[in-house]
Amino acid sequence: MSEIVDILISASFWAAVLRIASPLIFATMGELICERAGVLNLGIEGIMVIGAFSGWIAVYSGLPLWGGVAVAMLAGMGFGALHAVLTVPFGLSQHVVGIGITLLATSSAYYAYRLSLPQVTSPPRIEPFQPVQIPGLSDLPFVGPALFSQTPLTYFAFLTVLVVALVLYRTPLGLALRAVGENPGAVEAQGLSVTALRMGAVIFGSGLMAVGGAFLTISAFSSFFFEMVNGRGWICIALVVFGAWSPSRALLGALLFAAFDALQIRLQQTGFGTLVPYQVFLMIPYVLSILALILMSRRANVPAALMVPYNRGER
């Protein structure tokens, strides 16, 4: 027990929580925007892979780091546009399209990787984002190293939550987005375009997912590996449900998951960790997430028109 307390009071643990949470936050916000507009985007896992790859390869080929972020975002928006066209105007099954996009985007990334680097045995490294100290805040004892010694993308992730929440709840655009996920008929009857709103949400949301993927390569690991996204996209789908489609609660969910993840890594190195197979520790965040989901999602407010394609003129 004291081992857990020791972990929890170390600043490096909290720094790790924010770092692990960052890609989840981006992708969860992306998915949340799609779902609030009524489209389930199961392409998330593949879009994160394409974001991780394209951001990294752009930086490897000489673009600045922020250029890599932009390239990742554009690549994600490209696949998002494909998803949007198939699910919104064509009204195809969102499950089938989403899984298809994940398979297509993942394989495209792996194929492009092999094409661009046919000879290497171990993936080349890039110079990733470095932690940025915020004057004043970073010098605070404990809080400074724990919260304010992060890479720019982590700060950006938290900013994204703020912007998404502001747009959703404080602008007419957000009102329209939430309405189109509740009852697209209401949106059309008020003279707005259901197609434009939903497609816009899916494309922009997919861009954010790709930035989440890019965080892994150009902020965390500095290389691109196969399987590096490793189910994070699926976790984000669960986090949206966990957060009851609210940005702030989804953020909380991402932090909670990251905390369990950071905890299990550290627990493996304790005396306790030698007694228990490490796979048990790997399971902890997932098991706890499932438990939290069961508890939280009972009173969830699912967007009423989620996964319901809207065909104009049909009732």
């Binding site: 502001l166 404080r170 602008t171 007419p172 655009l173 009102l175 329209a176 939430r178 309405a179 509740e182 009852n183 008929g185 209401a186 949106v187 059309e188 009857a189 008020q190 003279g191 707005l192 407010n301 009423a304 009732r315």
Partner: peptide, 26 residues
């Protein structure tokens, strides 16, 4: 068949689509 978003307020349903999108505050 009413075209109302059920989990939004009456006012928000009335306001939907009446204002320019990019504007802080409803």
């Amino acid at each position: 068949h009413f075209t109302l978003a059920d989990n939004m307020s009456v006012l928000d349903n009335i306001l939907l689509g009446t204002e320019p999108f990019w504007k802080l505050g409803i």
